[in-house]
Design a protein around this nucleic acid. Structure first.
Lengths: 204, 204
DNA sequence: CGTGCCCCTGACCGTTTGGTCAAATGTTTT
DNA sequence: AAAACATTTGACCAAACGGTCAGGGGCACG
C-alpha cells in the first residue's frame, strides 16, 4: 500500500541499513524511548540523512511493523488443515520458536508495541490477525470434534503457543539470568519441553 | 534498604498517589517514554511537587520495582514442598494468573523492564530470583524422581507458568482483539485451560 | 568537461524534557 | 499569635528532542 520502490542501489542499501538500526533501537527502548540520534549512530549515518530516506521517526517505525506482520504470521499460515493434527501443531510450535530464536529483535519490537497499547497496529490485530486465528481455531475444533486430538479451547491453545515461544525472545534476559551462565542454549531445552507439553496436552 | 519512613499522613498519602500515577504511566510507556508531566497530571499534582517527594524520575521507578518484586514472588514462595505435587503446582498457576488479572499494570511494568534489558533489576534476577527458582526446581525434581509427577525440566516448567500467566496481562490488548468483544472474561477461559494443560503435562 | 541530479551534512529552530529555586502558602508547635 | 516547620507552586534553566534547510560534494551521462 505505502510501498516506496527503491530507485537506486544505494537507496536500497541505505534504507535497509536504517531499518536495521531502527529495529535495534526501537526493540530495546520502545518507540518513545528511541531517539533519532541513537538510530543514526547505530546506522553510521547522520541524522539529517535518515530523514532524507524516511520522512519521520514514525515512518521508520511503521515501515518496520508493516514488514513484520507477514513474517510473524507466516508459520500460522503454513499450518495445513489436511495434515496430521498433532504434527501440524507441533510443527507450528517449532517454527514459531525458531522465529523467536532467530528474530528476537522483531519479537521485542512487537511485544513493545502490544504492551504499550498497540494503537498503531490494533486494526491489523482486529482484522487480519483475528480472521486468521478464527480460521485456524475452526480447523483445530474440527480435529477435536473428530477425536484426532484431545478437546481443547482452540483460542487459548493458540495463545499459549504464542506466549510460550515469544517468552524466550522477549524475556531472554530473565531466562538467562535464572538459568545462569554457561549452560547450553535455552532454546534447545525449550524445544524439547514444548514438544512434550503439547504432545501430552493434545494426545487423545 | 532504601526505606524512607513516612513522617506525616500527608506525606504517606502523596507518596502513594504519586506511585500510583507513576505506575500507570510507566507501565504504559516504559521508563524512557514516560514523562514527569504525564505523571504529575495523572497524580493531580504539580511537577515540582513530585520532585519534593522523590528526588528524581528514576527514584520513582526504583521505588515501584522494589515494591513489586515481593508481590511478584509471593505466589512462588507460597508453594509448599510438603504438599500434594499436582495441587501445589496448579495452585501456583492459579495464584499467578490472579495476580496477572488483578495487577496488570505491575505485570506490564515488569515486562517493560525485562524487555528493555532489565539493567535496573538484573542483580535481583541473578540473585534473589535465581536462588528461589533453584530451590523450587529442586523440589519439583524431587517430586518427579519419586514418580509423584511426570518427569519434566523444572526450569522450563516454571518459565512456562510465567509465560502463560503473564501473557494474559501483558498482551491483553491482543488477546481481546482476537477474541472479539462481548465474550466472557479471557481470564476465566485461561484459568480452565491452564488447569487442563498442566494436569495433562504432570499427571504421571 | 560540464551540466544536472542524487546524496549528504553542518548549522540551526522550536518544543519538550528532567530538574532547580526562591518565594508563597499551609500546618503544627509553643 | 508568632515562631518553626512542612508543603506547594510559578518561573526558570540547560540539555535533548524531532525536524528543517541551504548548500556542498559526488556521480552519471551528454
Amino acid at each position: 500500500m505505502t510501498d516506496t520502490p527503491p530507485r537506486t542501489r544505494i537507496q536500497q542499501r541505505n534504507r535497509e541499513t536504517i531499518l536495521g538500526a531502527a529495529l535495534e533501537v526501537f526493540s530495546q527502548h520502545g518507540f518513545r524511548g528511541a531517539t533519532l540520534d541513537q538510530i543514526a549512530q547505530a546506522a553510521g549515518l547522520s541524522k539529517p540523512n535518515l530523514l532524507y530516506y524516511f520522512p519521520s521517526k514514525e515512518a521508520m517505525h511503521e515501515a518496520l511493523l508493516a514488514g513484520l506482520m507477514d513474517t510473524w504470521l507466516a508459520p500460522l499460515r503454513a499450518l495445513d488443515p489436511g495434515g496430521e493434527p498433532l504434527d501440524e501443531i507441533l510443527g507450528y510450535v517449532h517454527r514459531k520458536l525458531l522465529l523467536s530464536r532467530d528474530f528476537p529483535r522483531e519479537s521485542r519490537l512487537f511485544a513493545n508495541e502490544i504492551l504499550q497499547g498497540a494503537e498503531r497496529i490494533r486494526p491489523t490485530l482486529e482484522g487480519e490477525l483475528k480472521t486468521l486465528v478464527d480460521q485456524t481455531a475452526a480447523v483445530i475444533s474440527g480435529w477435536a470434534r473428530e477425536g484426532r486430538i484431545a478437546p481443547v479451547d482452540p483460542y487459548h491453545l493458540i495463545f499459549s503457543i504464542w506466549a510460550l515461544t515469544q517468552h524466550y525472545a522477549d524475556f531472554d534476559v530473565q531466562v538467562r539470568a535464572v538459568l545462569g551462565p554457561g549452560k547450553d542454549d535455552p532454546f534447545d531445552g525449550a524445544d524439547r519441553y514444548l514438544a512434550t507439553l503439547f504432545s501430552r496436552l493434545l494426545t487423545p
